[in-house]
Nucleic acid binder design. Structure first.
Lengths: 150, 150
DNA sequence: TGCTTGCTTGGAGTGCACTCCAAGGTTCTA
DNA sequence: TAGAACCTTGGAGTGCACTCCAAGCAAGCA
């Protein structure tokens, strides 16, 4: 039991990219299968493991990685956190909390709440920027309409 | 006439940070004054100029930079574009269009419209992430409430 | 006039997040 | 069983956006 998070599997959120179907009814995948499904490179997946961002990946008897569905779920969450702009070091911190077990639920919740605040602030910032873009695009459009008229 | 953009000055968007008032009734500022106002470092301002991201900055008779209000307006826009995650190279491209004159209005409008599409997509992405965060935070909160009860 | 603080330059250094390489072992298909 | 395609590792390299440095000139105040 590595991932002690109380997460219900939400497979929908790591659905395979179109044209890259996940093999059905299997719970082990090679690194290139996972790369195809997640959009990350095999290099990046190995690097994630090296820096402690993967909660331990199984190996075949010859040492090749065999990713499981729980790893795909984890990578789906990491993908979301990455989209927020969270630094990899913070994600590693979260991964450490997960490895430490259930007594870190509170810390994990706080970390996610801080991230949520950041994301909300970022959205507000972008909406602000959107207003500036709308304004400038209008000014260009208006100025071009005017110059056409004369 | 370097900046041929049809922009009305929108000083509100580059209002000095609280506690860092802009000297009133003046239209030339040293690099450190601009650094204070924009939140960028003097290093970064020099670097922006070197890579062609500033539409030409005036100099004093001894060669020191004298930024003007139009430079502050430009930096305010650059700051907004930077928030969108636009690569510096693209901002340089926009600066080049500005330097080339009014005949690039269409190209500039297109560039801003492409940026606007990116920003809208990014906001959608973040809102998606927000949903995942809400869900996970709920799960942790619920699980902690439950474990308290028993 | 002297002193402190600020500004100048080209070029080198930093931190982040990958990204790639070489050399060799593994797995799959014909 | 041959050959292609895939996997392994540590360590080096890349690209971006700064960030800093040294040596010397400039500006403002007592």
């Amino acid at each position: 039991m590595i991932d002690s998070s109380p997460v219900r599997t939400h497979r929908a959120s790591c659905a395979p990219a179109p044209g890259h179907p996940l093999p059905e009814g299997r719970d082990h995948y090679t690194i290139s299968e996972v790369a195809r499904v997640t959009g990350l490179s095999a290099h990046t997946l190995r690097w994630y493991e090296r820096i402690g961002l993967m909660p331990h990946v199984d190996r075949s008897h010859t040492g090749q990685r065999r990713f499981r569905n729980r790893d795909l779920d984890w990578l789906a969450l990491v993908g979301k956190l990455r989209l927020t702009g969270m630094p990899v070091a913070d994600m590693v911190r979260y991964a450490e909390l997960v490895r430490e077990g259930e007594h870190t639920f509170e810390a994990r919740q706080e970390l996610l709440e801080a991230t949520r605040r950041d994301v909300r602030a970022r959205i507000a910032e972008l909406q602000d920027t959107l207003a500036v873009l709308d304004y400038k695009i209008d000014v260009y459009a208006e100025s071009r309409r005017t110059s056409e008229r004369y």
